[in-house]
Design a protein around this nucleic acid. Structure first.
Lengths: 192, 192
DNA sequence: ACCTGAACACCGTTCAAGT
DNA sequence: ACCTGAACACCGTTCAAGT
């Protein structure tokens, strides 16, 4: 029962997302879990989607922290990249509805603050990619464009896995295999 | 007013998806557009998600046809690949909610028939990729794994664009730029 | 075989009050 | 400033009938 009502509403919404997906996050269920009446959330959030945006804001920060840790504690660029992708994929598979909320849902209202929160992890990712270029593991293209390509491939593989569209549904291994293949094929002088 | 009631329900659902997204596809609105009572759809579909699966089944066939056309009418592998990706991206941007229904939504019920419909376009895509390998535009990895990587990158770039997560929101150009970069970097002996 | 109208249990959201 | 209870306009779904 710690934290303000507002914080507890966000936590409850995140838990409901994990347990039953988007459609199970009703304001009534969230309120009940916190122990307030079914319309008390309106004292803290404009509407349901603003509450979900609160969950997204929190989780973007968590992912940004994981990327920062990968960047600052890895001995080389290759392991930093792998650590970031493992953390990202593990988050997505453990919190599927939350992952989709953050990186896919078009109805998430994007105010300036949330856009900033979403951009921070990507900035760190670009730094990791640039490091990989400096170590000659990645080709010397424009770092932002190359990061966009790698991130799109990771998001695509993970989203297909979460959506049940991957051929075999092997979870983490399937996504990491796609990542390893990509890194191998992008490595300069690798396909002779 | 042509077609059976069942076909008209699917068409109406697809149009509502295009106009207002998932949440605007209520059985009541679909029924009204077709001119039947609000629960007549239950004579043709088990529930709402079965109706949406009908839309998906139809659109998977449309995409499969486009890929087949790209494979059979292109002069070389590079233009076949580009034609397929352009058709795929154009479909996704013109029918955003339908694209997400087909390639992302975890709640789409996947019976055997629908899985088969979803797999057919990918099989054709693998053939196009294999052709590209034969023409030395793509590296000689396992064709299915390589196709999975390329498809994941395309899906990821397109889904980020549709979800408003792409940095600049340039539409078709943004997705195609990601594709062109990938093809360039995957080309054997390209980064010396 | 296909359709209709009433009904049920849910929702998000608003509003008039309460402390 | 924060919360509550009643109410409204929606939904998906079920059921008893109708032709």
């Amino acid at each position: 029962m710690q934290g303000s009502t507002k914080q507890r509403l966000v936590t409850a919404a995140a838990e409901l997302l994990d347990q039953g997906g988007q459609e199970s996050v009703t304001l009534r269920a969230v309120a009940e879990q916190v122990g307030v009446s079914h319309n008390a959330p309106y004292r803290h959030f404009r509407d349901r989607s603003a509450l979900l945006a609160g969950v997204a804001r929190h989780d973007f920060a968590t992912i940004g922290d994981a990327f920062q840790r990968a960047l600052t504690t890895s001995p080389n660029a290759a392991s930093a990249m792998k650590a970031a992708v493992v953390a990202f994929t593990a988050y997505g598979l453990a919190h599927r509805a939350r992952y989709r909320l953050l990186f896919s849902d078009p109805s998430l209202p994007a105010d300036e603050e949330l856009k900033k929160a979403a951009f921070a992890p990507f900035e760190t990712f670009v730094r990791i990619v640039s490091w990989g270029q400096a170590e000659k593991n990645l080709p010397p293209s424009d770092p932002v464009a190359l990061s966009g390509l790698i991130f799109a491939a990771m998001h695509g593989a993970l989203d297909l896995e979460i959506g049940g569209r991957a051929a075999e549904g092997k979870g983490l291994g399937s996504v990491m295999a796609t990542f390893e293949l990509m890194v191998r094929l992008l490595k300069p002088d690798s396909h002779e």
